[in-house]
Amino acid sequence: MRVPESLYELNADVAVPSGLPLVAGLTGFADAGGAVAQTAEYLRSELERTVVATFDADELLDYRARRPIILFDGDHIADFRPPRLSLELAQDDLGRSFLLLTGYEPDFQWERFSTAVIGLIERFGVSSTTWVNSIPMPVPHTRPISLTVSGNRSDLVESMSVWRPTTEAPSNAMHLVEYRLAEQGRSVAGFVLLVPHYLSDTEYPATAVAALEAISSATGLIFPTDLLREQGRDFVARIEEQVAENGELAKLVHTLEERHDTYMEGTVLRSPLTDEDGEVPSADEIAAELEKFLAFRRGRDDEPPLQP
């Protein structure tokens, strides 16, 4: 049996201080509003980073499901851009160090990957693990993005988790990492952003802001968000124009606002996801909506690329 450590290559030139927090976000599954992708890209572009470990894509990735990007220049391939999954040493806006795990979600070898990640957590004496995810839900864009919090950080669950269902749902690789960390009693928190379903297939800047705020709450790290907030204001302004011009959309948003506000006021409603008849969707119904979303994403990914 191959050892988990063979899944990645360490950068021996980097000295990682012990006791740093780990922040993670992997793309590839139900990234509603592009929350994880935007957050990871923003952190990579705004912060100073040094690669600590790079995972082997040939072991973990299904290239036919998520094909690498090439740059075709006139008559030749000018660039080939392989997907990356890496652990990096980064610094927040105040110069405080933390570890950042970003890139593709593995298609294969989840147990081995999970063991490898936990091995790195042990190796570097990581103090806490925080990861982000997002799913589409019938909530309005005119209200702050709500969260479901998982893990063993009871302080974060009590203060930030708005929706606490008991349900079955499709998992991702970080769910397994969280589960194994919790089994070992290691500090871990997962944030699931509940993104307006009608904006789930767009890059919604507010999701990245909400993700960064959640990470800050869990770790104390501070991140620059001015650019994202400006982009978010422009984005919402365009959405409001569309709502104003579309009566059906305006009615939908108003209905979602009423349900959200009623739920947040602490009424008998058990969930902000209540339907028109006041009934809470079943786990099967939620999973079915999620499957529709994923099927749409898969269909779009399978479209043939433009030919040069």
Rank of each mutant, 00 (worst) to 15 (best):
R66G: 01
P68W: 02
I69A: 12
I70W: 09
L71N: 02
F72P: 01
D73C: 03
D73V: 01
D75W: 05
I77Y: 00
A78K: 03
R81W: 10
R81N: 13
R81E: 01
P83E: 00
R84Q: 03
S86L: 03
L87R: 05
E88D: 13
L89G: 08
L89S: 12
L89H: 07
A90V: 05
A90E: 05
D93V: 08
G95R: 03
S97I: 00
F98T: 05
L99G: 03
L99P: 08
L99A: 03
L100D: 04
L100H: 09
L100M: 01
L100T: 02
L100W: 01
L101A: 07
L101W: 00
L101G: 08
T102M: 03
G103A: 02
Y104A: 06
E105K: 06
E105C: 04
D107Q: 14
F108S: 12
F108Q: 13
Q109N: 12
W110E: 12
R112S: 13
F113W: 08
F113H: 02
A116Q: 08
A116T: 08
V117W: 07
V117L: 02
I118N: 10
G119Q: 05
G119D: 06
G119R: 04
L120G: 04
I121K: 11
R123C: 05
F124H: 14
F124Q: 08
G125L: 14
G125V: 14
G125W: 13
V126A: 12
V126P: 07
S128R: 14
T130W: 09
W131V: 09
V132P: 02
V132G: 03
N133K: 07
S134Y: 05
I135R: 04
M137H: 07
P138E: 07
P138S: 01
P138I: 00
P138T: 06
T142V: 05
R143P: 08
I145F: 06
T148P: 00
V149D: 06
G151V: 10
N152R: 09
N152M: 03
N152G: 05
R153G: 06
S154E: 14
S154P: 09
L156G: 09
E158L: 11
S159L: 15
V162I: 14
R164G: 00
R164D: 00
R164S: 11
T166L: 15
T166Y: 15
T166D: 15
E168K: 15
A169V: 10
A169R: 14
A169I: 11
P170F: 11
P170A: 14
P170W: 09
S171Q: 12
S171E: 11
L176H: 13
L176S: 10
L176W: 08
L176Q: 13
E178G: 14
Y179P: 07
Y179L: 14
L181V: 07
L181M: 13
L181R: 09
